[in-house]
């Protein structure tokens, strides 16, 4: 299990990277390497050239401005988790990142790497959609901002052009009266999710004003549904209301049937976990810690 030979390129800037991508067919960007190097060790991935993103300036900052937290593509997942664990309004975020692998992989695995990999069961693509985030990419014709919904397309396929790179993700900061919750069902701790579910809820004057519920592992990409308009302004989420909300998610599902779980089991898991995350997000939005 040793990688096949490859040229190794150390760019000095984002422009360098774009130029390489434009001129080198089959070049692969190396971020945290937690999926790519494993695939290369198995010789299932054999890029002719590997372009490291380590050391390229401007890719590993976390900063907050204009109402959003901007997370550089090369920020490692564990760093983001630690930072977000102190932000109550991003309740589902630190919790969700905590389900990615293990501390030993999150300390090397990057936020951008996981997003671009676009595994349909992965946590960060789901979270970015639930928090209505966007992505900042740079290509030969300049930079683009892409909404998360449009970025993720099919399993392991995104809107990123072959000569474009992801430089950052933007996470709009919810109102302080927000709560979020994340749950995942996997065979073992740290395994790829069979089903993951996240919910975000904002309240104002003790009334529901906004929210988004999403699930991963149940379609070609994570699916989300906003708080139904007829639930807005309500003073609480009853079990019936939660069911009403989550049932709007169900038609979006196209769950796979595999060794681990049947399609039906995945649907059941979405229902069970959705009830839990909605209830918990609601309690947290009110400032409680259930």
């Amino acid at each position: 299990m040793k990688p096949a030979p490859f040229d190794f390129i150390r760019p000095e800037s984002v422009d360098d990277i774009i130029s390489i991508l434009s001129h080198t067919a089959d070049a692969k960007l190396l971020a945290g390497g937690q999926s790519l190097i494993a695939m290369m060790n198995m010789r299932l991935a054999r890029p002719s050239a590997l372009v490291t993103l380590h050391g390229v300036p401007g890719l590993d900052a976390i900063e907050e401005k204009d109402g959003a937290v901007t997370v550089g593509a090369m920020v490692v997942q564990e760093r983001m988790r630690c930072l977000m664990s102190r932000r109550r309004e991003f309740g589902a975020l630190a919790e969700g990142i905590g389900y990615i692998g293990h501390p030993q992989t999150r300390s090397a695995g990057t936020v951008g790497g996981s997003i671009v990999h676009a595994d349909p069961s992965a946590e960060l693509p789901l979270l970015l959609q639930v928090y209505r985030g966007s992505l900042e990419t740079v290509g030969p014709s300049g930079s683009r901002h892409i909404a998360a919904e449009e970025f993720f397309q099919f399993p392991f396929t995104t809107a990123l052009a072959p000569d474009e790179i992801l430089v950052a993700t933007h996470w709009p900061v919810p109102t302080i009266s927000s709560g979020g919750s994340f749950r995942e069902f996997a065979r073992r701790r740290g395994d790829f999710a069979i089903v993951a579910v996240a919910c975000h809820i904002s309240i104002e004057d003790r009334r529901l004003i906004d929210g988004r519920l999403g699930a991963a592992g149940v379609a070609g990409k994570a699916v989300t549904v906003d708080l139904p308009p007829d639930l807005r302004g309500r003073p609480l989420i009853t079990e019936e209301a939660a069911t009403y909300w989550l049932e709007m998610l169900m038609p979006l599902l196209d769950p796979p049937d595999d060794l681990e779980a049947s399609s039906d089991l995945r649907r059941t898991l979405v229902r069970t976990l959705s009830r839990e995350v909605i209830a918990e997000a609601w309690v947290r939005a009110q400032g409680g810690t259930p």
Binding site: M42, R187, R188, R189, G190, D191, F192, L259
Partner: peptide
């Protein structure tokens, strides 16, 4: 609860890595 070397009908191993062949961790 976890461990099986599963094969398809063509005799291909479906649980051939430690991501698929599930050895219990401390949490299990």
């Amino acid at each position: 609860l976890y461990e099986e070397l599963r094969y398809d009908e063509e005799g291909q191993l479906l649980t051939g890595s430690l991501m698929d062949y599930l050895v219990p961790t401390a949490s299990e």
